[in-house]
Amino acid sequence: MENPQHINNPLALPDSLRDLIECVGESAALRIVGWRGGAYLCVPKKVDPAHPLLEQIGAPAFSKLVDWYGGETLMLPKNDAVMRQIKHALIRQLRYEKNMQVDQIAIEVHYSMRRVFQVLAEDDPMPTTGDLF
């Protein structure tokens, strides 16, 4: 799962990333975070054909970004935190919607089986430990 194509639960993402997705779309927003995540992004006031953002996200998304945020400085979330949220959502989808086995999920998302179990256990606030009596 090197490059996810879709975020399953956008509400679980940081506000700054949700706003960016609304502005430029999911794909362009994830490319920006992959490129500069965890740092500030100074958005130019005008579209500049020499700006590195143009190469990163393309002309239509860059124009929208300048229209919405021209002259502002954005704080981007760290890429690893965003990717972890996406990966955890994928684990849940593979388990609960596609009924995949934990070992298959571990291979798919490049996690150990133990880590997959931990992620799935986060959904269960009261883990079953068996009867005490």
Rank of each mutant, 00 (worst) to 15 (best):
Q101Y: 06
C42T: 11
I105F: 12
E55P: 00
M83R: 11
M75K: 11
N99D: 11
V119M: 03
G37D: 09
C42H: 10
Q56K: 12
L120Q: 01
K64D: 08
A106H: 03
D80E: 12
C23P: 02
A28M: 05
D48R: 06
T128G: 14
E97T: 06
Y96N: 11
M113F: 02
D48F: 03
A81V: 07
L120G: 00
Q56E: 13
N99G: 06
E97N: 08
I57Q: 04
L54D: 00
S27F: 05
F62H: 13
L54K: 15
L65F: 09
R31K: 12
K87N: 05
T129W: 14
Q93T: 11
D124V: 09
G58V: 14
T128L: 15
V33R: 03
E72I: 00
Q56M: 13
I32W: 05
L94R: 02
L120W: 12
A61Q: 04
K78L: 05
W68M: 13
T128S: 15
K45S: 15
R36L: 13
G70A: 08
L30R: 02
A50D: 07
E72R: 14
L54R: 14
D48S: 05
S27E: 10
K87Q: 06
T73V: 14
H88K: 05
E26I: 12
Y96E: 11
L90Q: 04
G38L: 08
A50E: 10
L74E: 07
D123I: 10
P60W: 05
G130H: 12
R84G: 02
T129E: 15
V43I: 10
R84K: 07
E72D: 10
V66I: 05
E122N: 09
R36C: 02
I91W: 00
A28N: 01
F62G: 01
D67Y: 12
E108D: 11
A81L: 13
T128K: 14
A50V: 02
I86D: 00
M113V: 15
A59Y: 03
A29F: 00
G25R: 00
V24L: 01
G37C: 02
T73L: 11
M113L: 08
V24Y: 01
G130I: 09
F62D: 07
K46L: 09
T128F: 12
S63M: 13
Q56D: 04
A29M: 04
L74G: 09
Y69T: 07
V119Y: 04
W68P: 00
R114M: 04
P49I: 02
R95W: 13
A121S: 15
M75N: 07
A28W: 02
D103P: 00
D80V: 15
R84T: 11
Q85H: 01
K64C: 10
Y40S: 07
E72H: 07
V33L: 01
L94M: 08
G130L: 03
I107D: 03
